[in-house]
Design a protein around this nucleic acid. Structure first.
Lengths: 225, 225
DNA sequence: AGGAAATTTCACAGATTTGCCATAATCATA
DNA sequence: TATGATTATGGCAAATCTGTGAAATTTCCT
């Protein structure tokens, strides 16, 4: 699977390195820029920046300007970093369309968590294959390979499994599943899901156990444990 | 999605109306109160106030008192409105746990921006993990790790523990717990909470002691002491 | 239209959870 | 320390939820 590219903009190289290290550890690809101008250039050069982490205080063009400029033509998520919780800054941050606001000093852990949360929310992996512990989902081909061998699934089964794997580790209520895998105007019985889960589990064989039941709530796809 | 409820407290009806109009335009639901007493009542009646806008100067109970009282049992964001930018006021506002401080006169636009910023900031929590002294709550995964190991909890147990930890350090009455963790239409015995606390404590092992009993009142999650 | 495959619905058995009670243990206070 | 009030606990029955197999429907092809 392609790594997601994140543009990190800060004039302090120490800060960029810090952030980069954490992001790389989480398997993102990092592009750096040390001022607003370079940031804009890199952003336009690379067409596939998935998210931007933007320091406010920078020489030449400051963070607000960069944010505004990018918002003219793109909805790429932006996280703003500002020194201390200056209120006016915060206000401006949201007004001009930043998605998040984190004040320095921050824990890299938090930053990474936010990044992941945002990317999850905006989820832009439409066309890529998903793979997890021997199960490969080929979206374009609409087929699933288990340990390299094709697994025959019906349409709904495929959609359901894909949804599970897209959201691995996340507990999904039946209602949520219904809304995503079925049409929004489906008013049938939520227990239908159970039946599909049953078939999925059985077709997945030993890997069927990855679809865990969360009693009183729904299901969750999770490997291990 | 449900509209978020905002409680607007000010003795001047003109001011309330002004604020309300702006908030309603931004698709919030507004509840009004014209003095501190009414504010507290409304706050406790409605279980789902998302944010409070609180004027300081008010008859009966003033804004500071209201803020303090609410903070005894809740972390609901509070924005204080005070006449003039008196520093002492501002300081006090933050000391007693207000989240923001806006001095009159202010532009409603600013107020709305702050409201949105705060809700954004605090609302994020849905997606983030909570961690405290070895107990990690993975909300998305609907599971709890104790010192890295998964702890099996039932649905209610999970909800209850999450609620405790979200409000760590705050004494929670049984009624309040009931209102948050149980459905609004539950009219059973408040003693049921005791039973769940019992199970939680037992499952948490030595960490079970963090759930403290507040005699005659309810419970509180607190590490140490 | 006929038939096969895919989806849903249904009902029941088996699990798990939840709420409540009785009793023991604690606490606050006179 | 005695007493009334409040909380802790173990146990139980009722309520709730899930897994399944099978039947009922719908969809899709030919």
């Amino acid at each position: 699977m392609e790594k997601l590219k994140i543009l990190v903009v800060d004039d302090e190289s120490r800060m960029r390195k810090l952030v980069r290290d954490f992001l790389v550890k989480k398997d993102f690809e990092v592009v750096e820029a040390e001022d607003g101008e370079e940031a804009l250039n890199k952003f336009y050069e690379q067409k596939d920046i998935a998210l931007i982490i933007l320091d406010v205080m920078m020489p030449k063009i400051n963070g607000w300007e960069v944010c505004k400029e990018i918002r003219e033509s793109s909805k790429t998520p932006i996280i703003m970093l500002t020194a201390k919780g200056e209120e006016s800054d915060e206000l401006m941050g949201f007004d001009i369309g930043a998605d998040e606001y984190i004040s320095k000093p921050f824990s890299p852990k938090i930053l990474v968590a936010r990044v992941e949360a945002i990317l999850r929310r905006t989820g832009k992996k439409e066309e890529e294959n998903l793979e997890i512990s021997g199960i490969t989902i080929d979206r374009l081909g609409h087929q699933v390979l288990v340990d390299g061998k094709e697994l025959e699934l019906s349409y709904k089964e495929f959609e359901l499994l894909t949804y599970f794997i897209e959201n691995k580790g996340i507990a999904l209520s039946r209602e949520k599943i219904l809304n995503h895998v079925w049409n929004y105007d489906y008013f049938g019985d939520a227990r239908t899901i159970d039946t599909h889960v049953k078939k999925l589990r059985s077709k997945l064989g030993e890997k069927g156990g990855y679809i865990k039941t969360i009693w009183g709530m729904g299901y969750k796809f999770e490997v291990g444990e």
